[in-house]
Every structure is written in structure tokens, then in C-alpha cells.
Design a protein around this nucleic acid. Sequence first.
DNA 1: TACGGCATGCTTTTT
DNA 2: GCATGCCGTA
Length: 729
Amino acid sequence: MSDLLAKLNTEQLQAVTLPPQHALILAGAGSGKTRVLTTRIAWLLSTGQCDPAAILAVTFTNKAAKEMHARLGALLPINTRGMWIGTFHGLCNRLLRAHHRDAGLPQLFQILDSADQLAAIKRLLKALNVDDEKFPPRELQHFINAQKEAGLRPAAVDVWDDYSRRRVELYQEYETQCQRESVVDFAELLLRTFELLERNEPVRRHYQRRFRHILVDEFQDTNRLQYRWLKLLAGGEPPACLFCVGDDDQSIYRFRGAEVGNMRDFEREFQVTGVIRLEQNYRSHGNILDAANAIIRNNSARLGKNLWTEAGAGEPIRIFEAFSDSDEARWVVDEIQQLVRDGALRADIALLYRSNAQSRVLEHALFSAGIPYRVYGGLRFFERQEIKHALAYLRLIANPDDDTAFARVVNFPTRGIGARSIEALQDAARTWSTSLYATVPHLGGKPGTVLAQFVRLIEELRRETARLPLPELVDHVLDRSTLRDHYKSEKEGRERLENLDELIAAAANFTAEAQAGAEALAADHALLADFLAHASLEAGEHQADQGMDAVQLMTVHAAKGLEFDAVFVSGLEEGLFPHENSILESEGLEEERRLMYVAVTRARQRLYLSFAQSRMLHGQTRCNLRSRFLEEIPAPLARWLTPPKPRGGPGGGYYEPPRGAFAPRAQPAAAQALPGGLRVGQLVRHARFGTGVIIAAEGSGSDARVQINFGDAGIKWLLLGVAKLEACA
DNA sequence: TACGGCATGCTTTTT
DNA sequence: GCATGCCGTA
């Protein structure tokens, strides 16, 4: 035990050994947050203050949950069974399965991931003949999820006009559809569990009594409902101790409903007195931390924190100005080659960007130079088309009322069931109020129809697989559904076939782990239902060749929680980073700044920041001002690899490229001065549209046009000869 | 029913 | 620039 505590600094020690009380730990980037959480649990257990079963640890990602498990396993000799460690959604799933009756759900309910949910909404709109121009499915999805996160069922949502009334009706219809199909979306997992705990006193009491210590990771990312969920669970008599760890400066998921305000509310509502700040950073050199501190200081409404390190100042931050996005990419490649020549591991180098679209140019340059790289993000295993199709068959076996799954594979591989027949089926299903699957027998009653054959196929599958072990079950379904044959005959099907085999392997893996957990298999296909839940809740690792020494490419969001020896942050331009959609409101801008803070604090030793004068974006060349975040870095911390010029100065002229390699092929159009003394990046006023920023220019003479972002009034192309533009200071 | 051609429209995305 | 989505034709 004393070894355990010996490695901690004063604040960490203080946090780990806090007496049973509510606690808020402000854990800066690289300050040993995970260590504090796991050591806290280990300390509680090894000092006999509580039993493993009294511990509930909540994380946001499966990865974090797994890591916590692994670290605890290493820390503690005793087994950690009985402890509940998982994601909010995973824990809710567990609770709802255990109390499905009380929650009003069948035991084998299915979980919809975001894509499934969207598909279900589209299907609903079609069935109800709703104009999807008026109610775009994505917006409706967002609306529904926002209501659920606010804890509001349709009856509780305010309406004020026809539109809002109709929207709530659709929310209600969606709910009805989900209930009929026995499916539950991500937000529903949380809300349903919340309501279960709130309304069912015995169940609530049981868990309130059981969980004495609730520990929350990444608390700044909790949404409103998750906060209330925690509050409810911890609110027993006597209350449980809530130990929340987070960093308000790293809250970058506001757009998804995360509420940094939860930290303040927690402090107030739970009367947390001694907030503990972990400010000593074990990751980065001083210059990097000083830059991060300087940047984040520009945000208001912070809980306040300043990172420091015992490591030296280290190297200056390197800043590079490129002519274009491709020049920037070539420079990055050049620097990477230099780093590798100097002995760096490619896997310790990260290339970060604000949005995924930026990866293409970088990938191209890396590929041309023959540098191995790995892109994070994109499709994950369980999100692949072929896997989704296979899962849909499996879902129909477990739950024939799952209309999303039905619609997905009823004609895949094609068996001559067209849109017509599906529409007729959907209409019939509506009148009968039954699932698509259950409607088929009602339809005309001809057993020979292709639809009836499809239903028979599923039924046979269910019978044939009832006693099969999960991997064989999957294998069998792949054959009988002819999915495998389909991809065998497809030109590009090789990889898909491999993925289908991988699905069998995943099933085998899952079975092995479930058996190790010795979970009783009550019903036929119970393990299948668990496997399907697992597939929805954990989309699988991002595609990546493990173990290869490759440069890591990812968005800044994806980089949160990771660290690298050398980090490149590219595209530091106004409109890109900070993103133009966030620039106009201060809340948005502050989130962008936190994103920048996250990006900077990923670096251990070396940080490169770059921007380009011109960049291809949305199919057109744009010229952006360099990011304001660069200006927020104190000059002594940085070394410009290109001569710094006044920001947004009048072109400034070109300088000689340092190594001759980056000579611009063509002058970026908008670097030239425009008629009337205007330039790209300049703030202008227009009589009708108000104030805007010039973001691009093209043409000359009487054809000269400029593109202006007027914020609320949108982005417009205006002819300089026609539009009256007034330059603002 | 299936595929090809054109128009459209774009952040970030733990679950 | 690219991917998605809708519509028209074989």
C-alpha cells in the first residue's frame, strides 16, 4: 500500500486519500488523472473502507473503462469482480437488462447506434408521409436526442406553433415506433435508466445502498441527464461519495450536449469545499505548457488552473507559414523525415488537424514520400456496411420486430423485393400496428411470395441456430443469408469477406470472455443479444494496423487523452481553427480555444504549429488569416521558421523559401491587393448584410468578386464593381 | 430493379 | 474535392 502512495505528489496524495466526502478534482492535462482515479479505488479497497461491490466507476469511452480495469488489476492482488466499471451507456444497458420488466422493455431489446437511429427516423418520416424538406431527418434526430438529454418525454416538451407541435408529434411517433420494435437509442438508454431509478423506489434504494463510492472520469463531458443520473444514484440515505475528476479547460464536446457547467453545479449543489487542483504536469516541457497556459488564459469563466513542470523549458515551439496547403504538407513531411533521421519513432509523432477534410493533403504528401502513417477516425469495425448487414440478420433472429434490421436486409442480397413491396408492407404494418416482420403473414397470405420466403429464412435461421455456440451461429447465418456468396462475387469483396471472418472471430472472443465471466445463459440466443449490445455500444477499434511504426494522423478531438513526443498542429488559420462556424459566438470561440489547448498539450518535447496562406477548401482556394491562437502564444516561447509578418498585413511580399523546396507554383490569387484597398481577411460593412469578413477573391477588373462571410446573413459572393463595401478598421 | 449521372452540401462525434 | 442522395433510364 505504501508503495502505491509513495509515487504520488502532494495533491495527488491528497485526492487519493480524501475522507469519504464528495470531491471535485481539477486535473490538468498530463497531471496523472487516471492514476489518481485508479489509486483512489485501490486505496479505498486495500484500506478496507469498502468492498469492491460498493464501487461504481463511470467513464465515457470503452477504452478508458478497459484501461481502468487493467490498471486496477495491476495495482491490486484481489480480484476486482463485483466492481462496476464502465461507460454511462454500458452501465445503463446492464441495469436495463437486469430490470427490463420494471423498465418496460423486453429482455432482448436492441440498441440503435446513431446511424441506426437516423435510419429509423427516415423510415418513420416516409411511413407518415412527412415532407423531409420541412423536417430534415438529421435535425429531427438532434431534436429528439436533445429532448431526451433534457429529460423530456414528448408530453413535457413545450410547443408554441404548428411547427413545434408537429415536431413533438414526430418525437412521440418515434418513441412509439421504438417501443413497438423493442429498440432503444443511446439517449434512451440513459433516460430510461434515469426514470427507472427515479420511479422505482426498491430498485433505486437497492443501488443507492450498494454503491458507496461513485467515481466519474472526464466529468467535464457529462451532459445534463448524466449529471442528474449521478445525482440520483448518489442521493441515497446516507448519500454515496461522488468523486469527480475533470478538466473544464478540456471540455470540447459542448456541441454534443456536454455541459461544463456541471462542474460548477456539482461544486455548489454538493457543497464540495476543497476542490483539489492537479497542476503539476508530467508530460510536456515548460515552453509547451507556458504556451498552453497563455492560450487558455484568454477564456473567461474558467475554474482556474495553471500547469507547471519540473522538466526544463525545452525547445521553442516551431511555427511555420506555408504558401499553400500542399506546401504545408511537404514541409511537415520534411520535418518528419528529419525527426526520423534523428532517431524518432514514427509512432511518437502525431499530425493533428481541426477537421477530417484536412487529412487528404497530408496523407498524399506522406504517401508520396513513402512514410508509413495511420489515420484515426473514419469507419469503425462494427460500422462497416458488411458487418451492419450481418448484424441485421442476427438482430432479426434475436428480435424479429426490429424494423430497422428488417428494412436493411430484406432485399440484401437482392432477392427481388423492391421499393414497391416494401412500401405496401410498411403501409400494412401501420394499419395493423405490427412490425414489418409480423405483418408479412397478413399480407395477401400467399406463402410463395418472396417476402414470405424471407420471413421463412429468418425463422429457419432462428431454429437452426438455437443450440449453436455463438461463433458457429454467426458463421451459419453468413452462409444461409448468402451474404458470403454475395461478397464472393463482388469485385471489391475480398476485404469485406475478411471482415466477415473477423466478425466470427469477434463472436468467439466475446463468447470466451462471457464464459470467463460465468454469466448464466438463461434463454436461447441470450448470448447473441449480449453480443449485439456489445456491437452497438462498442463500435470497435478504429481501423489501424497495430504495432506498425507509423505516423499518427487524427483530429484534435480524437487526440484528447493521448500524448506524443512530437506534435504537428496544421491548418492554424482563421475559419479553420478556430472554425468559422464557431467564430461568431463567444461560447463557440472559447470551445475552439479549449480545443487548441488540448492540441498543444498533447506534445511531450516538440510542438510544431503551421498555417498556409492559401488552402483548397470546399473545392475552392481560400486565403485565410493566420489563427488568432498563434497570436496568443508569447513571442519568447516560439521560434518562427519563416519570417513572421504582421498579421493580415498588406500581402507583405514573398520571402525566399528556406530550402528552395517549397517554391510556390503560382501566386495565391487573393494575396494580391484588391481594388479599393481591400484584402482577404479584412472586415467590411455592407448596407444590407451587415458586417462580414472577406474570405476569398477571384477575377479582376470589372469581374473582380469577393466572397464574404456575413455571419448570420451567410456567405455571399459580391461583385466589387457593384456592391458598396465599406472597410472597417 | 439496378445502375449511372448530376446536383448538393459540407466541423468536431467518447456512446 | 469528395461523398452522399436523388432522379432518370435500360
